[in-house]
Amino acid sequence: MLKKRLTGAVTIRNGMVVQSFGYNRYLPIGKPKVVIENLDRWGIDEIFIQVIDRSAKSLEPDIELIDEIATSGILTPIMYAGGIQNEAQAAQVIRAGAERVCIDTLLHINPDEVEKIAKRLGGQAIVGSLPVGIDNNGIIYWYNYQTKEKRLLNDRLLSLVKDGLISEILLIDWQNEGFDEAFDFRILELFEKYNLPLILFGGLTSEKTLKKAFDAPMVVAAAIGNRLNYSEHAVQTLKNQLTSAPIRTAYYHDRSIFKHYD
């Protein structure tokens, strides 16, 4: 049976992993390589690396970082977001060692380019990032981090998924990101009608909220960030608390098998 995935989210700003609170306030955690190697060692199902200052500073994707991570011997699928503005850059990210690219800004400003990326790399390699919230009228809105504007989900965006140009949606409760048990499940209810494969992110911290997320048929993965950074074997500990969820069970392996080859 295909397992649902526990995704480790690593937020990078100014070259350092940070704890983010609503993408508004940040606390430093440490070096990306160390944090990512830990997640890999503990058997996370996939790693989501989001470099949040690339697009804001009009910088290209951080290929150096992806290459550094990949060459360090990571054996976990990597999903990368940050600074991808065109097809060539997306291909470069994949060649450097990421398994998938996560597109955010480009969905707002140039969906045609997203289509080009999908035609080159295949929709299986594309995840669409949707920071969303619910307004005072109970309507779901799509947030643009760059312009700080809120807009309604549009047909063009949804057709990218329906047409198989994007395989999954990273649905971010952007306002509650970084806060304890804060994910607003009304977002999930409002999204049900679209019937799209979803990776949920933002305020999913406890096993209770994660179980609730995994119970939803359209949820294929749940991403968590901060909670995984504070204790040794945090991934296995969390997976052991989620044994009733349809996820890959925790595993512990003897690192000596790798050391022999390092």
């Binding site: 199902d45 299986q124 993965a221």
Partner: peptide, 29 residues
């Protein structure tokens, strides 16, 4: 539509390379 994520290998034939991986999870996309 998509087969993305970890799934369990079920070996259905004898293979010196694959058989020992029966029941293990691998990543698909």
């Amino acid at each position: 539509e998509w087969h993305i994520g970890w799934n369990t290998l079920d070996c259905v034939g004898e293979c010196s390379i694959a058989s020992k991986s029966d029941g293990q999870n691998f990543y698909y996309n």
